[in-house]
Design a protein around this nucleic acid. Structure first.
Length: 879
RNA sequence: GGGCGAUUGGCUCAGUGGUAGAGCGCCUCGUUCACACCGAGGAGGUCACUGGUUCGAACCCAGUAUCGCCCACCA
């Protein structure tokens, strides 16, 4: 991004005003939304040189219902940045994407239409879903009609398309300065092609691989789940003290999962644990099932947990997986992919008693099986005491509601440093190259990368997603040759291996021995969204564009998805391009409800974003959002929106006033040479400081600071400066130079203030701009301080403060006397601190006029060091 | 258990070494000559706590407490 030639107010620009008699915020969203769209105000110019481009990797919102307040909040932050950069002269690449390819979309379609996907069915042309709309509640799974995968995908596309149209309408109403001609869907052919191409290239370089291994599995969704999608939740359970049978008597273990007893492969204690030294190397038999298992030592066993000796099952938790792997234990899986115990009796249960007990468990859920095992243990006398209730932490899929099981399955992985120190270090180093805003968010990246315990699992056993562009040859027995995958060539992507045929085969060979089958899985949603820069930037289709926008400048996102979206994007970029995907990452906080809890969906639905925008106005809601700093969670506060609305209205009214002093057909002068009165020049000096501070803050992604300094100045401008100069500005006949000075200063200040407010209040500022300027304020340049300083000369801003204080003192006299502010003061003496004597003197005429002072105004240096005070004689007091 | 934030008037928050700030709310008053979706004035805080550094601490250091979040934690 290059520094731009800033616009200096051109003294020759004078325009005739068209100020409406009555100003209002109502309807500005529609009016200007339409105008911006028609005029292409935010269209990205692909011809712009690369150094001028500022590219934003916009988060594609998940299409699974409606946008909520948190979206409005964080997307406003991004839009403020986009508008600022655009005004600074950057050509802003600001696309919008829709993430519509994942599990949330599937679930919404199931609930909305009352269907479920059954891949074994064939396509039904013209299928009409049995149900439409949720009526606030979901169709129960039992009532869902099974339909084919193509039918299901058709419905996914239809519903997400409808949702996306609504999303876009909301974003336009909010005033996001997105280039709407650059919209993408993660389920589009192009996005699928990018995802498949990136995968194919990962595979060719050995960065993607397939493995058959135990992994976390959600029994509800029946899919594998990645580490990044885990959520630890409290889960009620109970310790069961269970006796294993050793040569020298019982060995007690404690377990919260007695139903896994038939899957036990060993008992394990810490090598240094004195209590179990004599048992290491011996064999014990399990209760109920009479399976002989070894007692082994492993340092991962914790002596103070439970009985200090653990029952290792395949697989109860990730520690079991570690033991199984490191101690080379057998695999005795009993829990299936549906979360139920295997129907057939496992072959390692050889005694009639064991088989009889298992027969009671077969096909049961883990929950029911647990009850059955506990009952059997009680009967056999192997349960010592009663179960002790406890709360334990269990891993859940973040979107699921049952604890994850661990099952063995064949899955695709991408290397992410979880098993490779060199890669991990390289990715940590990439983190150093990204400027996080706020910077302390970077530790979350470091924590996550440092704590990875495996590669990135990218395959999901779902339907609506990007399929893996891979087929497997079938051997003579019809078994897939997973070691010899047939990978689609980049040139033919996207492909769907369930309908497309690999090179060298015919469709008839699908599923027959000696033929082929397609990989049935789809990619995890993050595997696609980790490629948003590639998708939005035209990596495959428009290399020229891609070279201009990549690496991008900004990744805006929530701090809750640093470990997923941010990290996975860095991984893909590092592997494919050997660089970071963007220079800056802006992390927005969450919206909390007034109870300081994270806004829940149910509460969020009570106040819909569109309802808020309609009620308070988009500028008002944007003001609320822009008042919260990056990284900080903010309260949902209607009060803040009302303040924003008041500010927007004030901008309209103050602008109308500032433009009102000349006759209607008289042009407005922006000539700095006309500004000769010290008070006017002092005001511009103050404004110059504001411009510098606001610019510096926005450059540093601190939009709240920029807004604050601008707003503070603006209220002083309205309350003090405008009041002080209005009589002089009107009095063109009595004091032509003084009036011209005030009018030019007002116009120059207004011009600058509108630009400063434009990123936060795009509608009100554009409205005012249209009254007296040409073009859009959003394509006008960002103001710079140099011309203001030149116009201000050596006048100190303190003059405005001193005159303002003097005016406030006069007002206070009237306020305390409980009379109108228009009451005439017959004479007054100002008591001012010595330091202000000179500066107040420079604006005395304006102070007199604004204070309605008709007689003498004396200035004395106060004896005590106090703010400005006044002794005054009021008209009424003398009457 | 490790880490990161936060703690300032009733509320929401600014304020990184020099006599406590804003807005909202509250109180008093005013106003239709830009603005009632208004204006002016006012009251209100020992800056979570304890030590320390310093001429001087809301701010720097050490510790404590409470709250929130991130990571780890399934025997």
């Amino acid at each position: 991004m290059s520094p731009l030639t800033p616009p200096s107010p051109d003294p020759s620009i004078t325009t005739t005003r068209r100020v409406p008699d009555k100003v209002s915020l109502d309807g500005l969203e529609d009016r200007w939304g339409t105008a911006w769209s028609e005029q292409g105000t935010y269209t990205f110019d692909a011809q712009a040189p690369a150094e001028q481009v500022y590219a934003i990797d916009t988060p594609p919102p998940t299409v699974s219902g409606s946008l909520h307040l948190g979206h409005v909040f964080s997307y406003t932050h991004t839009d403020v940045v986009a508008r600022f950069r655009r005004m600074r002269g950057a050509e802003v690449f600001y696309p919008m994407g829709w993430d519509d390819n994942g599990l949330p979309t599937e679930r919404r379609v199931q609930n909305y239409y009352g269907v479920r996907c059954d891949p074994s069915l064939t396509y039904t042309p013209g299928f009409v879903p049995p149900h439409e709309g949720t009526d606030g509640k979901a169709v129960k799974p039992g009532d869902q009609v099974p339909i084919s995968r193509p039918n299901f995908i058709e419905l996914c596309l239809r519903l997400s398309g409808e949702d996306e149209a609504q999303f876009e309408a909301l974003w336009r109403h909010l005033g996001l300065s997105v280039d709407w001609s650059r919209t993408y869907r993660t389920i589009s052919d192009e996005a699928r092609a990018v995802a498949q191409q990136a995968f194919v290239r990962n595979l060719a370089r050995g960065e993607a691989y397939q493995a058959l291994a135990p992994g976390l599995w959600d029994v509800t969704f029946q899919t594998a789940v990645a580490q990044a999608e885990l959520e630890a939740r409290d889960y009620p359970g109970a310790y069961h003290r269970v006796a294993f049978h050793g040569a020298d008597g019982p060995v007690f273990i404690e377990t919260t999962r007695p139903e896994l007893l038939p899957a036990c492969v060993a008992l394990i204690a810490h090598p240094d644990d004195e209590r179990y030294q004599h048992l290491f190397g011996t064999t014990v038999t399990s209760p109920l099932f009479d399976v002989a298992v070894p007692v082994l030592a492993h340092p991962a066993a914790e002596p103070d947990k439970g009985a200090g000796i653990a029952m290792c099952c395949t697989f109860g938790d990730l520690t079991d997986v570690q033991w199984w792997r490191e101690l080379q234990l057998p695999n005795r899986t009993v829990v299936g992919r549906d979360g139920r115990l295997e129907r057939s009796t496992p072959d390692w249960l050889t005694t009639p008693g064991a088989q009889a007990v298992y027969a009671e468990l077969a096909g049961k859920t883990t929950f029911s099986a647990r009850e059955a095992v506990v009952a059997a243990l009680r009967t056999s006398g192997d349960l010592d005491g009663e179960p002790t209730p406890t709360t334990r932490k269990a891993n859940f899929y973040e979107k699921g509601d049952k604890p994850l099981e661990i099952v063995s399955s064949r899955q695709w992985y991408i290397r992410n440093g979880g098993r490779d120190g060199a890669l991990r270090d390289a990715l940590l180093a990439r983190g150093e190259q990204i400027a996080f805003h706020p910077d302390y968010m970077k530790v979350r990246y470091d924590n996550w990368v440092g704590g990875l315990n495996g590669d990135w699992l990218i395959s999901r056993q779902r339907f609506f997603g990007v399929p893996f562009p891979v087929w497997y040859p079938l051997d003579e027995n019809g078994e897939p040759r997973y070691d010899a995958p047939l990978v689609a060539d980049e040139s033919i992507l996207p492909v769907d291996p369930s309908s497309d045929v690999p090179v060298g085969y015919t469709a008839e060979q699908r599923g027959v021995p000696g033929g082929f089958i397609g990989d049935p899985d789809v990619m995890d949603t993050w595997a696609t969204s980790s490629l948003t820069p590639q998708i939005a930037g035209g990596w495959r289709t428009d290399p020229e564009l891609f070279a201009k926008v990549f690496p991008m400048d900004l990744r805006p996102q929530g701090h809750d998805i640093i470990r997923t979206w941010l990290f996975s994007t860095v991984v893909r970029s590092h592997l494919e391009f050997g660089q970071v995907p963007w220079s800056d990452a802006a992390l927005s906080g969450w919206i909390l409800d007034p109870d300081r809890k994270k806004m829940s969906k149910s509460k969020g639905n009570v106040v819909t974003p569109m309802g808020l925008l309609t009620e308070h106005g988009s500028d008002a809601v944007r003001y609320w959002a822009a008042s919260a700093r990056l990284g900080t969670d903010a309260a949902f506060e209607v009060g803040q929106m009302k303040i924003g609305r008041r500010l927007a209205i004030k901008v309209l009214n103050a602008s109308k006033f500032a433009l009102s002093f000349a006759a209607d057909d008289e042009p407005v002068s922006l000539d700095p040479a006309a500004v000769v009165v010290p008070l006017d020049r002092a005001m511009l000096a103050g404004l110059a400081d504001v411009v510098d501070k606001a610019t510096e803050a926005l450059e540093a992604y601190d939009h709240t600071r920029a807004l604050e300094v601008t707003e503070t100045f603006f209220w002083t401008f309205c309350d003090d400066y405008l009041e002080l100069v209005k009589d002089r500005a009107y009095a063109a006949d009595a004091d032509p130079a003084g009036a011209a000075s005030a009018r030019a200063a007002l116009a120059i200040a207004l011009d600058v203030l509108l630009r400063l407010f434009a990123p936060v209040l795009p509608f009100a500022t554009e409205e005012v701009w249209s009254w007296w300027r040409t073009g859009s304020v959003h394509r006008a340049g960002w103001p710079t301080s140099a011309p203001l300083r030149a116009a201000a000369g050596d006048a100190p801003f303190a003059v405005v403060g001193a005159a303002g204080s003097a005016l406030a003192a006069l007002r206070k006299v009237k306020s305390e006397a409980k009379v109108s502010m228009r009451t005439v003061i017959l004479s007054a003496t100002l008591q001012v601190p010595e330091a202000l004597e000179q500066t107040v003197g420079l604006a005395l005429a304006d102070v007199r006029a604004a204070g309605r002072l008709q007689g003498d105004l004396a200035v004395q240096v106060a004896e005590v060091d106090v703010p400005v005070a006044v002794d005054a004689v009021l008209e009424q007091a003398s009457a």
